[in-house]
Amino acid sequence: MKILVCIKQIPTSDININDSGKWITEGNNSSLAISRFDENALEEAILLKERFALLGISVDIDIISIGSQTAAESIKRAMGMGADNGIHVITEDKGYVSGAVTALRLATMIKKISKAENIIKMGDAPYSCCPYDLILTGIMSEDLMQAQVGPMLAEYLNIPCVTSVVNIKFDDNLNDNVDITDKIEVQRELEGGIRQNIKVKLPALLTIQAGINQPRYPSLSNILRANKKKILTYNIVDAQSSNSFDPLKVVRVEYPEKKREAKLLNGTTKDKAIELKNILKQRGLLI
């Protein structure tokens, strides 16, 4: 069984709007990490691998990331957590990339890597050509927050998609005595904690919501194993298809307008604490 997890490296430091007003700059404490929802997707893949192993089914986890040189660190981290292979598509695109572009690039790469033909042609129902049984992404990235890449990638590959997955079940399938590599049962989350039960035939794409698991830390043995492995590296031109121009453009970025006064308290920590206390007393919120 083969699982692909799509991960994105994002800045976790405080960000500010840059001087041109067209994009952002990362703060002094610049640091990068795997977007949180993607990390949940990765952990879920590893959990699947472990549970399948108990049943004597081997699972191979590939990681793919489109990103700058530094994204290699995130791929290594993913392998340190337990993924088997890494694929890095290097691009220096830093600004806004719409979901349609990323999804098409991923689809192009998947096709290229597997050499499966036609998987990007829609309507031909060539779902059996998808080289992966399961593709997992985060529900959205923490930086651009579009929630587009997963569902769009599924369309390009012509496989079914379930978004906001908070649970992947096994036991029911086992009792049914059906082939668990054929169909899985998942729960997706709606507003207010409502859940929808869905059975989906593989190959399928799931976008993973936080709360499904607690991502583990990389283990030393996995890191050592990962260091010995080569990450498959491609250039972004390899992922280009004929129509991969970006349908969206960002004109500028702005700080949102203030909905309330946002009165800023000044002075030392203690000054602020005392001032807040007085404000709350005046309003009868503190006795």
Partner: peptide
């Protein structure tokens, strides 16, 4: 974008 810290103004 960015956890709600800023708005991206987008055109098609």
């Amino acid at each position: 974008v960015f956890k709600g810290k800023c708005n991206a103004i987008v055109g098609v």
